[in-house]
Design a protein around this nucleic acid. Sequence first.
DNA 1: CAGTATCCTTAAGGATACTG
DNA 2: CAGTATCCTTAAGGATACTG
Lengths: 122, 122
Amino acid sequence: MAPELVRSVLERIGDKWSVIVICRLGPEPRRFNELRRLVDGITQRMLTATLRGLERDGLVTRSVFPTVPLRVEYALTDSGRTLLDVVQALVGWAGANAETVHVARTEFDRRAREQPQPVGAG
Amino acid sequence: MAPELVRSVLERIGDKWSVIVICRLGPEPRRFNELRRLVDGITQRMLTATLRGLERDGLVTRSVFPTVPLRVEYALTDSGRTLLDVVQALVGWAGANAETVHVARTEFDRRAREQPQPVGAG
DNA sequence: CAGTATCCTTAAGGATACTG
DNA sequence: CAGTATCCTTAAGGATACTG
């Protein structure tokens, strides 16, 4: 049902940071700057945007504690946790196959460099 | 080991078409135009680019049969098939949760429309 | 049939400065 | 601490015409 809906869900997960942020959220709630430190290379702007997107999709909750200084905690929802499972499988695959893929890429690029022409040259 | 390698593998899967193409390849080999018909909305250019990327990563093989007319078949490799499994889990999750996510989005957008200001207005 | 070559648009994301 | 506001760059992807 509704293949466009499925695609719109995949597009969220397919952005640059969502998968990593979901993994770093894991089981416990995390504060904003804590996440920022855990997700290597993310900017403040993109962390906010990513968290808002996940919150919008009902995958993450945002809890504000009006203390001084302000305290904001992010945590996975129930459906967020079910997504974490499949995302971990994906990251696990990437980890297990990173080396193989890297070798394949190097080989492919070497062949492309050696025979750029359709018909034998040289 | 090598978190950047893992990320580079995730980036391939995270583009617009790879997941869908991998699913459509499934167990049997497919011809180019056959795939083009199966993957709704993809352009010739993007199908070529996506298949090249998958071939480069060692996930897909490209077999040319020099008949007239030309015949080119694409098939998943062994590691491509292991990726298919986890990708199917992801697509399965998206399918199972599409409705829930859609509702969450609608609710989120409604609340954002009603209270755009940090402090109660109007 | 199975592509490649060109041109173009849009939007994702980075950098930086500022704030309740 | 946890953001928002602006500006800018790049690259992903679409449209279209052409080809071995």
